[in-house]
Design a protein around this nucleic acid. Structure first.
Lengths: 360, 360
DNA sequence: TTGTAGGCGTTATCAA
DNA sequence: TTGATAACGCCTACAA
């Protein structure tokens, strides 16, 4: 166990003053290139890294970003946040930040968590997920002057903070257009209850695409709390009705999976996943067609989020660019940290893309 | 923005010395009850929390625990680690620790991450996941004297460190026994290639249960890399063979999902998820039986990990007690932190339980 | 360009 | 039982 390497160790070893070492790290331009390289070599050799604790005492910066890890929820859609968290950790690391986790059962508990975390670890900022109408968190942080970004639009809340989001409407619109170009005309929408910002957003994409195509969306939509069984029940209702939709755009993979279960159940059409199918006889394969309208008896289904389940089941779905979202979050947050609160906060809206598989 | 509340603020406000405040927090027994209560009241009122940075400078303890967040892998099984991470964050918080995240592409990169993290943030310890034979990480940490626990047995590596694990063999044994008691005799095992400790562990449970029942397991097992399509292909091979197994115990939900897909495909038996089914007619429901051998034409399938997909699809599966694992990890780690390295490291092996759903 | 002094908030040591 | 003082490692002045 090599006793701790401090800036002094480096200074002695390199035969320079402590200050010079500090300058090599924090203000390289002040140091003669020759010296700089020498010191840098010693730093590398010793594996020296400035102690964050000490650094924070002077500078007030912890290079820590607080992020809430959410309970698994549905578990299917919750996965989106887990993937986001992974991307965020990587993006943060590239900017020399670390992610500190906390949990909270609700918004109030989360605000309490901010206080605890800020007082003890003083993270430089937070990344908030799952914003929603009436969300008290941004206002609180704004009040305290704590830097933060949200993954999710303000949805009616104050928009004087940076945010990054994915254009859900563009996603469902793309899904709808995909179905339209496959020949579908009666395209239903299976979404969540109105009010949650994301719910309306995803519905709007379907709605506008239908209208743009000159189609009447009346009676073609249902709304229900998220969940596989709920999706299955709703899909049953929609597809068993007279003059049913021939395709369903869903607000989540959970709903879509339920719908798809129902479709498989009633049509008896089972589609093996692509890889498995390719190992069967060519004749067998050729007898199946892959997409939409040509197979009138099997309604098409499109999900949202490209969760692992979707891939496993062969569900066509809308994928969010989570890596880009994470990078943008870090970029906006570091900008807020550096630039202070001078300029007006930046907003980033990214476009998702459709992943076409078996179900549509 | 209330200017930072330090221990001095509290001391002044309470009319005592800084040291007394410190004692109230760290060594209450040294302070006269009367004084203690008074100071505590001021602390609460001001919402004072000791700065970890400053605290760390003196004590050397950061109250930070480093954990690697893994890339999504399969995404189905990766979910287990995400859930574990959530539980771990909560368990850590209860012990006044925080989780700091890092990523690493492989073991070597992870060891590099230890060095960086240790030098800069000096976490008090690490929780390692996904241990495997030949794992270089425990040895490295042991060498450096860095406290850590692993979620996963050493699998042949040094066992002079605390670990927590779930008894996979007990899980597959329970699954096998469940099938046995449902009347199955030819029970197959669909697992991973030998060598990975977990793979052998889960296989052994099935094997010993079969032997204990006096059954010959010969030719009833297949091994393949994890994945849904791989599972589907393998299940096809096993179930289409002459004298096929009537049930399959799988090493993961991914494999099981593939197998189950195949079963649904070939038997044409579609089982709606329980909740959805309950909304149908009673007559309809009654015409289906729920379990195993009574329906000879539909092979039973049991997965492992109780992932969200399993719930969604109605897969019977073995569930790991992740909350308990997380708590045990924190308990063992804090013990190592407090007790030092005096006693021999503790090991905890927890028993999983079977979650019975539609598929078996 | 390099070196020295002071202080960030805490806790351990020691004296009162 | 309480209080003063030093020290943890670093960085920002300021001086050389």
């Amino acid at each position: 166990m090599p006793s701790k390497v401090t800036i002094r160790t480096v200074a002695r070893q390199a035969g320079v003053s402590v200050q010079t070492v500090s300058n090599v790290i924090n203000a390289p331009h002040l140091v003669r290139p020759e010296t700089r390289e020498h010191v840098q070599a010693v730093i590398d050799q010793l594996g020296y890294r400035a102690s964050q604790a000490a650094r924070q005492m002077r500078s007030g910066r912890s290079r820590l970003i607080g992020v809430r890890i959410e309970p698994a929820r549905d578990g299917i859609n919750g996965n989106v946040l887990d993937r986001f968290l992974h991307e965020l950790t990587e993006a943060a690391a590239r900017a020399e930040f670390r992610i500190v986790l906390y949990t909270a059962a609700d918004d109030t508990a989360e605000i309490q968590a901010y206080q605890d975390l800020l007082a003890a670890y003083s993270p430089d900022g937070f990344v908030l997920t799952s914003t929603h109408p009436g969300d008290p968190r941004p206002g609180w942080l704004l009040d305290k002057g704590v830097p933060f970004v949200t993954f999710g639009r303000p949805w009616g809340g104050p928009d004087r903070h940076p945010w990054v989001d994915v254009d859900g409407a563009a996603g469902t619109a793309a899904a709808t257009e995909h179905l339209l170009s496959a020949g579908h005309r009666r395209i239903g929408f299976l979404g969540w209850p109105e009010g949650a910002g994301v719910a309306d957003d995803r519905r709007n994409g379907w709605l506008s695409a239908m209208r743009a195509a000159g189609l009447d969306p009346t009676g073609l939509e249902r709304h229900v709390e998220d969940g596989v069984t709920a999706g299955e029940r709703m899909a049953a209702e929609m597809l068993a009705a007279p003059d049913p939709p021939t395709a369903l755009v869903c607000a989540s993979d959970s709903l879509a999976l339920g719908a798809w279960n129902y479709v498989l159940a009633t049509t008896g059409h089972y589609a093996p996943s692509p890889a498995a199918r390719s190992s069967r006889t060519a004749a067998n394969t050729r007898s199946r067609s892959t997409s939409g309208a040509s197979r009138a008896s099997r309604p098409a289904v499109i999900g949202f989020d490209d969760t692992p389940v979707a891939r496993a089941v062969g569900l066509t779905t809308v994928a969010q660019p989570l890596a880009e979202v994470a990078q943008a979050c870090i970029r906006l947050l570091t900008a807020a940290l550096d630039g202070g609160d001078g300029a007006s906060p930046e907003h980033v809206l990214l476009t998702p893309h459709l992943v076409v598989r078996n179900s549509a």
